[in-house]
Design a protein around this nucleic acid. Structure first.
Lengths: 243, 243
DNA sequence: CGATAGTTTGATCCGCGTCAATTCCAGTGG
DNA sequence: CCACTGGAATTGACGCGGATCAAACTATCG
């Protein structure tokens, strides 16, 4: 991140005062301090946003749909994916609360967005959202920070997709999950399917399954239930991740 | 691009007047109008920048070096790459004049940058560059637009790396080159090596070479010299690119 | 023209995809 | 509480695309 936390929320001279309302579906209370809105703490700007819910598997929008709206996730998990003409799919990322989507192109969405778990989002008309950028430079800064973070993640993923073996891909995936989850006894509840994981890692479901079994037999992880992973040797996973 | 050209350079109310000098190595004249600098037309902000040149093959910085500086390319081509511990390489992108690099992380560079051709750049101390962001919101807007464009490109590349065959990758690469070069008789001069192309497409030099030969035999392209490509059937390339 | 790096081509091998068959499990109804 | 059911996950057998190893060829630059 080349925009550190200290900068986000730092009162720049050019920022003016404003009011912000509470979004009816946001649990997180928006923050309005000295003319600066911290989107870290308030992903949803209620004045011009409308709430919506999605069930698991529901599609928010498809690749190539007209990009009329911009969204932020307030709860649950979404997956973004792109398709080839014959149906091969690549999942480019998973979104969590606070993430934005639909910004990349003004014309049409460049990926599909589908709910992995039940999801709550805030919807903004694109024009209104762009208006917010003008009003609130801090929002722009936060977006820039997020874009930089996502770009870094995308480059790591390119390395994985272009150069890593199946075992390294799965080990990387698990190690990253473990790192992100923090210390919860190394237990990770994963709602996505093997197909989602496979499409994210650029391999097949069969290979995901085989590789998980192999990692289990090597004592690096345990899989009590298909969607529950237990990290037994984090260092071993990192060592197996290739980089 | 979700920040259209019209917005870049739009005079925001909060922007103040400033002076800007001509960079001694920039050929493009910086533009100072009504307190707004259009980085599209002036990638180099001379007041706080220093120029530098790189020969082909010279390394600007390595992955994991302390990220003390930020750069913009003013001429030539750079390649960005990431390494695995055993030396496998992934090229994440090629940079052209006007592109920025070194912004992603405040701590250390997350990729190596190496000159593909002789290159001229402008160097900024990181802190000074971040200061510019505060001063010139238009610069921030432009960066945000670029970040969005790069993110979209990265997602396309993830689809390529995760799901396309070798033939589709090479066809995609050539079709994109042809599209970007515009109508120059379909002739493309490429300074990068087969290894660079291979590391960009996530395959080996041998496979690049074989695939190029195959495309040539199929009458889609011609290769008078190793670094000169002639597009004979653009539509055929697009058809062979998979998406 | 010789030296050297880059490119092409060939032969072989293997990791992972493909196809197919169970097995597992969450949800449903009896 | 248990049998039933359909989708998800696992496991197995086999083949292929592209990696690897090796050698010949060809640009480019002193």
């Amino acid at each position: 991140m080349w925009l550190n936390k200290a900068m986000v929320g730092h009162p720049a001279a050019s920022v003016s005062r404003f009011d912000i309302h509470r979004c009816e579906i946001c649990e997180v209370r928006p923050l309005a301090v000295c003319g600066v809105v911290s989107i870290e703490q308030s992903p949803c700007l209620a004045a011009i946003a409308r709430g919506a819910r999605l069930e698991s598997g529901e599609v928010l929008f498809h690749e190539d749909d007209p990009a009329k709206e911009v969204f932020t996730v307030t709860s649950g998990m979404l997956k973004l994916s792109k398709l080839l003409s014959d149906g091969r799919r690549q999942v480019t990322g998973f979104l969590l609360p606070g993430d934005y989507l639909g910004l990349a192109s003004a014309e049409r969405y460049i990926y599909s967005a589908e709910a992995v778990t039940p999801v709550r989002i805030c919807r903004f008309a694109r024009a209104a959202f762009l208006g917010l950028l003008e009003q609130f430079p801090a929002l722009e800064k936060a977006l820039l920070g997020r874009a930089a973070t996502e770009l870094a993640a995308a480059q790591k993923q390119m390395l994985l997709l272009g150069r890593k073996t199946a075992r390294e891909r799965v080990a990387t995936f698990l190690a990253e999950l473990a790192a992100r989850a923090g210390n919860q006894g190394g237990v990770i509840e994963l709602s996505m399917t093997r197909t989602d994981i496979a499409d994210y890692l650029g391999i097949t479901t069969e290979t995901v399954s085989r590789t998980l079994t192999s990692l289990r037999k090597d004592g690096l992880i345990d899989i009590p239930r298909p969607h529950l992973f237990k990290i037994l040797q984090y260092s071993g996973l990192v060592a197996a991740s290739g980089d």
